[in-house]
Design a protein around this nucleic acid. Structure first.
Length: 656
DNA sequence: GGTCGGGGCGCG
DNA sequence: AAAGCGCGCCCCGACC
């Protein structure tokens, strides 16, 4: 980690600023160590070709981060938004090893600095939040954002929203959140930040004035380099920015490659569970019986009838409607706190079994049924769009297709191409191991040096592995119900440093402060509403609002979890970046095919590589080396191990 | 007609 | 068994 250059992330890597346009052309400008111009801008007719050529002619000659040489060039391309520019480049075979994503890095920096500004504002109530020195250049850069992309130029056509859906930002936020990197959503009237990247607005259609855009880009980049260097831990923050940017490259490449998806297998799973695919609903006629009436498959229709019969309702009850369902259950003498599966399972009544089956099948049908298949799977591939940095903790989000919520039973449909395999790697018990490394708790670290963490802890909990797990989860999530409180007390006694670490994070959150991940990703500051609510309550003259205590504890749980989840995301992101680099060093297989291993899926702590069977061992080795790289880069020397369970399978469902 | 919040549930 | 954290997206129903 110390070998990282503060200014450049890596010794020997040069930076080149990139602005697209006009047309297929573009502007390049080499940068010096401080991000200033190291030459005059170079206009190129074919940007993809120019980048491709420079990637090939500037090889990385063994500059090492300690984990061995990396294939690819020694250029770090500096551009506004990977998600906007890189799809077109990658499709034109201009695959790059490294980039610096200005928009993602700006989001990291602004979230970091929002905390300080927020604190300052607390002192002078009416004061404007202090803006970074680069703000004028940043605004200019946003002004140069191009209009909507032309067809085939911006996002690849197969990864844009399906025509019949509209994206709406999620509406359930932690009560104290004011800002998320890729969202202009303002949940509670808190300070709004500029939308850093809007896929509807940003395409690769070039800015009207590329030279002016280049000026703004270079200015913002220089400011980012300086602001990274000013971080209390500049090397870590530089690594975070580099990993976030590498993740953005990987995300685009994964969307282009797609996850192998057998539509025929998926269809037979649906048919087996739901009955044959119902004919398409026919416009207005079908709506007379409700939008779903014509489209409800046979099995769901049967179950709905059984539910109504068992409840003895005069009118058919729609099990999709919590309101109708609650009333019908009440009429049958059943009172439930909600119509969730968990609550229903407590009830003993003939209507419950078909109702539970209905809810499970209806979920499959509506979220991952035939309509999903039609919309999201083409040419044997599922191509979701990943949103790097879309979660406050640094986890990725996805847009369309529910890519990160694929039901486990549909893993049967994820099948490698003939002669190819899936290398499925899953970080085992990542979050508790991250806590062990973060807290530097020697006793806990010793337990985390073992294979199964919870088995190793079980001895401290009367030999009960399940209790050890509950204690850990409670510590990381802030749960205290049931016997969790007792188990937490045991944890606190045996592992005071680990318990103290998360409790300090919770305390910081309750006091309105922010916390940071291992690499320096910062949680959002509390919203104005949260501050008002909690400050009012702390005033002895005011009436005590029960909402205030709830909000206080909710933010404590949020920051308590943030330090663990976000540091785990740091580790996973660095692992992904290192794996991506290492995969390029694997020589082509003996079968002579152009068989480069492809990253095809990434889900928080799990990664899938699709490769020729002959390369599976090399890929598996790259995975474990990448994990070791990540552990060293994120946590430095630590006794904690981060084992990956790696399976080489033809079908994802066989991975574990 | 469309929008939006709630309830619910899939994943980690 | 669920809970405590983080998400996306479905349907429903209130509302404009």
């Amino acid at each position: 980690m110390l070998r990282l250059s503060v200014r450049h992330g890596r010794i020997g890597v040069v930076r080149v600023a990139v602005v697209p346009g006009p047309g297929r052309a573009g502007l390049l400008c080499p940068l010096d160590d401080h991000g200033g111009r190291a030459g005059v801008p170079i206009a190129v007719d074919d940007l993809a070709a120019a980048i491709r050529e420079r990637e090939r002619s500037a090889p990385d000659r063994g500059h090492s981060t300690g984990g061995g040489p990396i294939a690819g060039s020694a250029i770090r391309w500096v551009w506004f938004a990977t998600a906007a520019l890189y799809p077109a480049l990658a499709r034109a075979d201009a695959v790059v090893a490294r980039c610096h994503d200005i928009s993602l890095t700006e989001a990291l920096l602004r979230t970091r600095d929002a905390a300080a500004r927020d604190g300052a504002r607390g002192a002078s109530a009416a004061g404007e939040p202090g803006e970074p020195a680069s703000d004028a250049a940043w605004q200019r850069l946003l002004d140069y954002r191009p209009g909507p992309a032309e067809p085939g130029v911006g996002y690849p056509p197969d990864t844009t929203y399906p025509p019949d859906t509209t994206y709406r930002p999620n509406t359930t936020y932690p009560p104290d959140t004011t800002y998320r990197p890729n969202s202009s959503y303002r949940p509670d009237g808190g300070p709004i930040q500029p939308a850093l990247f809007d896929p509807d607005q940003v395409g690769t259609q070039p800015p009207a004035d590329p030279r002016a855009a280049l000026d703004a880009l270079i200015e913002v980049h220089a400011s980012q380099v300086a602001r990274i260097a000013a971080d209390p831990h500049p090397a870590r923050f530089a690594l975070l920015a580099a990993a976030e940017s590498a993740g953005a490259l990987a995300a685009v490449e994964m969307s282009l490659a797609g996850l192998p998806w057998r539509a025929d297998v998926h269809d037979s799973i649906l048919t087996g569970m739901l009955g044959a695919r119902p004919p398409a609903a026919l416009g207005a006629a079908s709506r007379l019986g409700g939008p779903q009436a014509a489209a409800r498959p046979r099995r769901l229709t049967e179950l709905a009838a059984q539910i109504s019969a068992a409840l003895g309702t005069r009118q058919p009850v729609n099990p999709d409607s919590p309101g109708q369902l609650t009333r019908a259950l009440a009429a049958a003498g059943i009172r439930v706190s909600s119509t969730r599966l968990a609550a229903l399972r407590e009830v003993d009544h003939p209507a419950i079994a078909p109702l539970i089956e209905y809810k499970e099948l209806a979920r499959l049908h509506s979220a991952f049924g035939w309509a999903w298949l039609d919309t999201w799977v083409a040419d044997g591939r599922f191509r979701p769009e990943y949103v790097v940095g879309g979660v406050v903790s640094g986890r990725w989000a996805s847009r369309g297709g529910g890519a990160l919520q694929i039901p486990r039973l549909l893993r049967r449909a994820v099948v490698a191409d003939p002669g190819w395999v899936l290398v499925v790697a899953d970080a085992a018990q990542l979050e508790p191991r991250v806590l062990a490394a973060l807290a530097g708790d020697r006793a806990f670290a010793a337990a985390a040096a073992a294979g199964d963490l919870y088995n190793a802890l079980a001895g401290h909990f009367g030999g009960d592995r399940a209790k050890a797990k509950v204690a850990m989860l409670s510590a990381m999530y802030g749960g205290a119900g049931g016997e969790a409180g007792q188990l937490l007390a045991v944890l606190r006694q045996r592992f005071p440093a680990a318990a103290g670490f998360v409790e300090a994070a919770a305390q910081a959150g309750q006091e309105g402060r922010t916390v940071r991940s291992a690499l320096g990703r910062t949680c959002p500051p509390p919203s104005a509403r949260w501050r008002a609510l909690t400050e009012e309550a702390s005033d002895p003259d005011s009436e005590r609002d029960p909402q205030a205590g709830l909000a206080l504890r909710a933010r404590g749980r949020f920051t308590r979890n943030f330090v663990v989840q976000a540091s785990a995301a740091d580790w996973a992101l660095v692992m992904l970046a290192r794996l991506r680099a290492r995969l390029t060093t694997i020589p082509a297989g003996a079968d002579g095919r152009a068989s480069v291993p492809e990253l095809v899926f990434f889900q928080h702590d799990e990664v899938i590589v699709h490769c020729a069977r002959s390369l599976a061992d090399d890929v598996a080795a790259a995975v474990s080396q990448a994990a070791a790289d990540a552990t060293r880069l994120v946590f430095g020397p630590t006794p904690v191990v981060f084992p990956l369970t790696t399976a080489v399978v033809e079908c994802y469902a066989d991975a574990k």
